[in-house]
Amino acid sequence: MKKRFSEEQIVKILQEAQIADTQREIIRKYNISEQTFYKWKRTYGGMSVSEVKRLKELEKENAKLKKLLAEQMLVNEALKEITEKKW
């Protein structure tokens, strides 16, 4: 599923909502639902654009490390099976 707004855009929208008179104006302006707005607010509220970029980098790094760990665990399991067999 393709996102209409990037994380950076979402943060800018939320910052604009803090300045605006009502949140409903922002919701109408960007054609988003109230649920989406409040979900964004819960997730990205109070963050700056640089913090969102850093969060994105950390999530990518975490996914990479999880993949490496899973691969290493498979290798270890295979080595255990090989050593346990009686030739």
Score class of each variant (00 low, 15 high):
1 M>K: 05
1 M>T: 07
2 K>V: 12
3 K>Y: 07
3 K>F: 06
5 F>I: 07
6 S>K: 12
6 S>P: 05
7 E>Q: 13
7 E>D: 13
7 E>A: 10
8 E>D: 12
8 E>K: 11
9 Q>F: 05
10 I>P: 04
11 V>Y: 04
11 V>Q: 03
11 V>R: 06
11 V>D: 02
12 K>T: 12
12 K>W: 01
13 I>D: 06
13 I>R: 03
14 L>P: 07
14 L>G: 06
16 E>W: 03
18 Q>A: 10
18 Q>T: 09
19 I>C: 04
20 A>N: 09
21 D>A: 10
22 T>L: 06
24 R>I: 09
24 R>C: 02
25 E>T: 11
26 I>F: 01
26 I>R: 00
26 I>Q: 02
27 I>W: 03
30 Y>C: 03
30 Y>G: 03
31 N>C: 08
31 N>E: 13
32 I>N: 04
33 S>Q: 04
33 S>N: 02
35 Q>H: 05
35 Q>K: 05
35 Q>C: 05
35 Q>A: 12
36 T>A: 10
36 T>K: 04
37 F>G: 02
37 F>L: 05
38 Y>T: 02
39 K>P: 00
39 K>R: 13
40 W>H: 02
40 W>Q: 01
40 W>S: 00
42 R>S: 10
42 R>A: 10
43 T>N: 08
43 T>R: 10
43 T>Q: 08
44 Y>Q: 03
44 Y>P: 04
45 G>H: 06
45 G>E: 07
45 G>I: 07
46 G>V: 08
46 G>S: 05
46 G>L: 04
48 S>T: 15
49 V>E: 02
49 V>W: 00
49 V>P: 04
50 S>Y: 09
51 E>C: 00
51 E>L: 00
51 E>K: 06
52 V>P: 05
52 V>S: 03
52 V>D: 01
52 V>R: 01
53 K>N: 02
53 K>H: 05
55 L>T: 04
55 L>P: 00
56 K>E: 05
59 E>M: 13
59 E>T: 12
60 K>M: 11
60 K>V: 09
60 K>P: 00
61 E>G: 01
62 N>Q: 13
62 N>G: 02
62 N>I: 09
63 A>Q: 15
63 A>T: 07
64 K>D: 08
64 K>Q: 12
65 L>R: 11
65 L>Q: 08
65 L>F: 02
65 L>D: 01
66 K>P: 03
66 K>E: 12
66 K>G: 02
67 K>N: 12
67 K>E: 14
67 K>D: 13
67 K>L: 14
68 L>A: 11
68 L>N: 11
69 L>Y: 10
70 A>Q: 14
71 E>D: 15
72 Q>E: 15
72 Q>K: 15
72 Q>A: 15
73 M>D: 13
74 L>I: 10
75 V>R: 15
75 V>F: 12
75 V>Y: 12
75 V>E: 14
77 E>T: 15
78 A>P: 00
78 A>C: 03
78 A>I: 07
79 L>V: 11
80 K>A: 11
81 E>C: 05
81 E>Y: 11
81 E>T: 10
82 I>F: 09
83 T>L: 13
83 T>R: 14
84 E>C: 05
84 E>V: 08
84 E>R: 14
85 K>I: 11
85 K>D: 12
85 K>R: 15
86 K>M: 10
86 K>R: 13
87 W>V: 14
87 W>Y: 14
87 W>L: 13
